[in-house]
Simulated assay, not measured.
Amino acid sequence: MKNNWWKFLAVAFVFYSIIGGLLFEVPVRAILNETIRNLYFHVPMWFAMIIVFCMSVFYSVKYLRTGHEYDDLKAIEYANVGVIFGCLGLITGMLWAQFTWGEWWSNDPKQNSAAIAMLIYLAYLVLRNSIDEEQKRARIGAIYNIFAFPVMIVLLFVLPRMTDSLHPGNGGNPGFNSYDLDSRMRMVFYPACAGWIMLGLWIAQIRFRMRKLENDILHQ
């Protein structure tokens, strides 16, 4: 129980951010209006995705160093959860775009880059499932995963800044600052980021335990 305190905190933060995100007062901003509430959901999804993918890369590197099977299982399960959060980030972003930009998908550089990043990680999952031999699958998957992460960072944070973009913080378009993200929003935004990140790590741990049990049963 003592080691599970952060799980209770994760649940508390997520519930608090959902309630606060829907009910608490937000500043009135042109164009955004009430859609600014999506900041509590859209951005934390991407933060959680990046942290979870970081953990996946960490265990891929660790597997290449140790060859331990469980490190490979952790790498794939963290990647699975990262893809889930990435898809949630895309969906919440499309919803926000519909009400602020006027269409679900406007081929904005940030949208396109995010979609390509998700395709790269989906290809990683397909690659692993296409190789039958366990050690070969683990090695190739680990190498692919290690290279996929920096490519994702470039797609999400570098390329969109080099061209015109409607997305805040890219292509000369200013991001959220102290004027937009006031103290009322910070009281919800920061717990939301922490809660979804911890929830993502928790889900990945649960998936790893399930995969480990399945793997142990198959090798009995």
Rank of each mutant, 00 (worst) to 15 (best):
A79W: 03
R65N: 11
I91F: 14
K62Y: 12
L64Q: 08
Y63V: 13
I84E: 07
K74H: 07
V81E: 12
V61P: 00
F99H: 05
T66L: 08
A79H: 10
T92D: 01
Y70L: 12
T92W: 00
K62Q: 14
L73R: 10
L95N: 07
Y70K: 15
N80D: 11
H68L: 14
G93H: 06
G67A: 06
Y78T: 05
H68D: 14
N80Y: 11
W96E: 01
Y70N: 14
Q98T: 03
D72S: 12
L64D: 08
E77H: 07
Y70D: 15
Y63M: 12
A79E: 15
Y63G: 06
A79Q: 14
M94C: 11
A79K: 12
W96M: 04
E77Q: 15
H68C: 07
G86M: 04
T92S: 14
L88Y: 05
G93N: 09
T92R: 00
G89Y: 01
S60Q: 13
V61A: 06
G86N: 07
E77C: 05
Q98W: 00
K74R: 15
G93W: 01
S60K: 12
L95T: 10
R65K: 15
V61D: 00
S60H: 09
A79S: 15
I91R: 06
H68I: 11
L64T: 07
L90S: 09
G89Q: 01
V83K: 02
V81P: 03
L73P: 02
L95S: 08
V61H: 02
I84Y: 12
E69Q: 13
R65Y: 11
D71Y: 14
Y63H: 12
C87R: 00
I91E: 07
H68W: 06
G86V: 04
G82C: 04
Q98I: 03
D71K: 05
D72R: 04
E77P: 00
Y78S: 03
K74F: 08
A97Y: 00
M94N: 07
N80W: 05
G86H: 04
T92P: 01
G93Q: 08
A75R: 09
Y63F: 15
F85E: 06
F99Q: 06
W96S: 01
G89C: 09
G93Y: 04
I91V: 15
R65A: 13
D71C: 11
Q98A: 10
D72H: 08
Y78W: 04
L95A: 08
E77Y: 03
F85M: 13
T66M: 05
W96G: 01
T66A: 03
K74V: 09
G67P: 11
I91K: 06
C87L: 12
I84D: 09
I76K: 11
K62W: 14
F85G: 06
Q98Y: 07
A97E: 01
M94F: 15
F99G: 00
G93R: 03
G67Q: 13
A97F: 01
T66C: 02
L88S: 13
G82N: 08
D72G: 07
Y78C: 04
T92K: 01
T66R: 11
H68R: 14
T92H: 00
L64G: 09
L73W: 00
L95Q: 04
D71R: 01
G86T: 09
V83N: 11
F85A: 12
Q98D: 08
Y78D: 03
A79P: 08
L90N: 05
I84N: 04
L64P: 03
I91G: 05
W96R: 01
